[in-house]
Structures are given as structure tokens and as C-alpha cells.
Amino acid sequence: MPIGFQSVNFGYRRRVPVLQRFTIDFPRGRTVFLGPNGAGKSTVLALAASVLRPDSGTVVYGRKTTTRRADLTAFRRRIAWLPQQIESVPRLTAREQVAYVGWLKGMNRRDAWDRSLGALERVELADLAGQKVRRMSGGQQRRIGVAQSLVHEAEVLLLDEPTAGMDPRQRRVFHEILSGLDQHVVLSTHDVADLEETYDHVVVLDRGAVRFAGEVRDFLALAPHGTAPGRLAEAAYYATVREEGPVCA
């Protein structure tokens, strides 16, 4: 399993836990992470990216854990992370920003610079490589963020709402990119369109607890009988988050 949580407890404030004894193994392939706002999806992804440290419990990838200092560097090299809030270093161009993140992720400067243009090409921003990131639209900045997560060829991509702010055409391009990736992907989104075509697995989180974890077809089967084919994912989602206890396949 690429990324696993073992009895993780975490809270931003001492008496307000977000996750309690949280345990899950994100399977290989492309996993979509669903849940209402405030469910804890961004927290789980940030913990998986080792940006946050659990209060207790462990986050593992292979034999590496985020709680052991000695493992942290190797762990982070293999994980790409796109946070929900995309920021850039002031005054950097698109290519410089992507290359800088590549360097942060352990690439040497030359390799990071050479690969940055390829990463921008994949998100169709190569023609804006020389433009300052701060002058770009929100959707374009989001794509810069995606390029940042692609530049260092990590084994696992953790993407927190990567399509937020993108127009339908950009979302389609993003899904095409996603389909062509070799890496394992865990992606949180509110966009459930094309679920079956794009993803292999679904995890639904609600109030810090897993309501569903399984394959896409098993998730879609949760939709009430008679649901229109185009609304299966949405119906299954609402069926899941209204459940009192976890529903796992």
C-alpha cells in the first residue's frame, strides 16, 4: 500500500481533535478523496505529505514513517504535495517557481530547471513559462501547483482540490493528465464528474471518520435504486455521508 495511517490522532488545538484513531491504507492507483467541507480531507493529505505531524500514531509509506526524523527526507522525496492554498515566491516566473519547488524537493538546480519546462508543458502552460506567477489567474496558478507536483517525479501525488478555480476545459485537461500518470494519486475534490473513468478507488471522509473506502463501482452501487446514470456518484456520496456509521467495502 502506498500510504497508510495507523491509529493517528491529530488536532490543531489540544482539546479539539480532528482525527481520532484514524486508520486507513490508501490503495495503489488513483484514489479520489471525498467529503463535506470540514471533514478533515486537507488535514489527512497534509499529514500524508508530512507537512503536519500526528499527535500520536504513525503515517507510513513502505517502511518509512513521518514520525522518524531519519525517514523524513526519503519520505518527502517520494511524495509530491499540492496544498489547497497555492502560493508562490514573489517575483518568480512560472518556470522559476516550478524549478524552485523541484529544488526544495531534493533535485539539484540544473535538473530542476531542465525538467520545469516539461512539467509546464504537461499542464499546457509552457508558453507562459516566463510570466510572473502572481500575474496569472487563479486557475493558471492552480496548474502551476500541479506542475510543481509533477516536476520531481515522485511516486505518490497528494493533490488537495487541484481543479478548484479551473474552467471545464482545464478540468478535462487535468483529467487527461491524471489518466496518463504512472504515479499513485490521492486527490481530494468536490467534483465527482467522470468518477468511473478517472479513478480506481474512492474514500469518503466525514467528521474525521471514514464513511466509505473501496472501489469506484462499489461506491456507485450505494446510490439509491433508480438514480439516473449521470447522477450515480452524487447520489452515492449523499447516501454515504448521511450514514451514521462507517460504510466500507
Binding site: A46, A49, V51, R76, S88, V89, P90, L104, K105
Partner: peptide, 15 residues
Amino acid sequence: GRLRRAGVHRLGAVR
């Protein structure tokens, strides 16, 4: 301040 604004320390850096 530039690095803070860019959230560099929230990117899971290897460096």
C-alpha cells in the same frame, strides 16, 4: 517574508 508568503515551509520540502 517572501518565503513565508510562499508557504515554503508547508510544501513538505526535502531541503
